[in-house]
Design a protein around this nucleic acid. Structure first.
Lengths: 248, 248
DNA sequence: CGCTGCCTTGATCTTCTTCAAAACGTGTGG
DNA sequence: CCACACGTTTTGAAGAAGATCAAGGCAGCG
């Protein structure tokens, strides 16, 4: 028995120096838009990437910083945030290994549009925007994949806009929990566990409400047996029940 | 004197058959991602496009339809909408000539993610998704431009998410009015006129509120001398004042 | 002139935020 | 191993922002 840890979330620490060069090739193969490249090309591209580890909570770049690099999550989770002048933060997305972030706007704006922070201890590899542009020019197939992924993200953002415009906090939380479980969930003795430390603050930032309201809704959901939740973790126990809530 | 029309918005009707083949080449040259192509290439690409006119209010495609074509606005304005089960609609964007919409997800999903409707009488040209993909493969420069534009749109969507999460209806309306004026505005004896028929319903759908609340906010703005507004039109008279409102 | 949509305004009610305080878990240092 | 301290979570009560319901007004058009 390791300890009396209550978190069912797996929080193994990844040492910053774990992302060795040999591992990077494997990581790159799992990046959706590099998947179809020849091994030789991949090997060359690999040379252009640099890896770095981050502690949980550490910021990878800030919104407004000069945008020079494109990143790919290698291990752990990264969250993308927007900041409002009022001090209120908004969480746009949680990324898992294989997803990219950073400087996408290859030609135009040269500022990061959002802040990237390590949600868990994590490792990310990155490439200079210039080098990435060269790759896109040489491999049209990669460009097509990138366009495809961006279209998906745009759709996800539009879905979020619809949620915020038309649904109650209760519905939005139900939706976010289901989406996160879909993306990062693991079946478990507790239920369908979201493999991510997720506080009430995080949840509030994800659905655009306050921590208090988020807490109240979570209590209600738990009381009704839809979820099990504790400090920084959530598991879904009644998927259909939550879906019903989400739909109104 | 034509009549006692009150709308300062220019509402010249475009006949559906106005988009002749000769005009199309000119239109294509103004599409951001075709701008840098050689005349000869453009001429070939032009052959692949088909044009069609739409009456104001007419729907170009519905969310959920099989996605087969990519469109470019040639003349007039097109709005992109999301629908909620509750019946509430959300307006994601208003497009002007040169902007594209439709099937962007070249490889993956084969459904339109939103509904495109003619906000004014308009004309759009379109190309089959297959043909467009071929163009992207042949001209990497076009792909880069497309990625760039999609990055901009993603940023715009994220900005909207931040607005909805962190700002009041008043702030959101101020923001939308300024953004629309920036995009479609024309200096005029009335003020900075938004060249677009824009009802209270449209406004409400743009900022995620009800027509009543939108109307109240607009009345307040007019009372304070920030805007002039009437049936389906808005002009900004105090840009700085509105900006101040937008910031809180 | 009256009809049909759009726009406005008022009153009421719900949802969510805000402010405040207490309870709980977790890691720390005695 | 226990107890304290800190950050997280919960809960309550009051207040504000916005939604909803319901009329009434105004512009444009036949």
């Amino acid at each position: 028995m390791p300890a009396r840890r209550k978190t069912p979330v797996n929080t193994e620490q990844i040492e910053p120096h774990l992302c060795t060069i040999s591992l990077r090739l494997e990581i790159l193969q799992n990046v959706p838009f590099f998947k179809d490249l020849a091994e030789q090309d991949l090997r060359e591209i690999n040379q252009l990437f640099v890896e770095k580890g981050y502690a949980a909570g550490e910021t990878i770049y800030f919104a407004g910083d000069t945008a020079t690099r494109l990143y790919v999550v290698a291990d752990g989770n990264v969250k993308l945030m927007q900041h409002a002048l009022s001090g209120q933060d908004v969480m746009l997305d949680v990324l898992k290994p294989g997803e990219f972030f950073g400087s996408l706007s290859i030609l135009g704006d040269d500022e990061y549009a959002n802040t990237a922070t390590a949600q868990t201890a994590c490792c990310a590899i990155s490439i200079g925007a210039e080098d990435f542009r060269r790759i896109l020019q040489h491999f049209p197939a990669v460009s097509l994949k990138v366009i495809d992924i961006m279209a998906q993200r745009l759709n996800a953002a539009h879905e979020m806009i619809r949620q915020l415009s038309a649904h109650s906090v209760e519905q939005r939380i139900a939706h976010v929990l289901l989406a996160l479980a879909q993306k990062l969930g693991q079946e478990n003795e507790v239920g369908w566990l979201i493999q991510l430390p997720l506080s009430r603050v995080d949840l509030a930032e994800l659905v655009g409400t306050t921590t208090e309201t988020a807490s109240r809704v979570m209590s209600r959901f738990q009381k009704e047996g839809l979820i099990k939740t504790g400090r920084q973790w959530v598991a879904i126990t009644d998927r259909d029940g939550l879906t019903a809530y989400k739909l109104g």
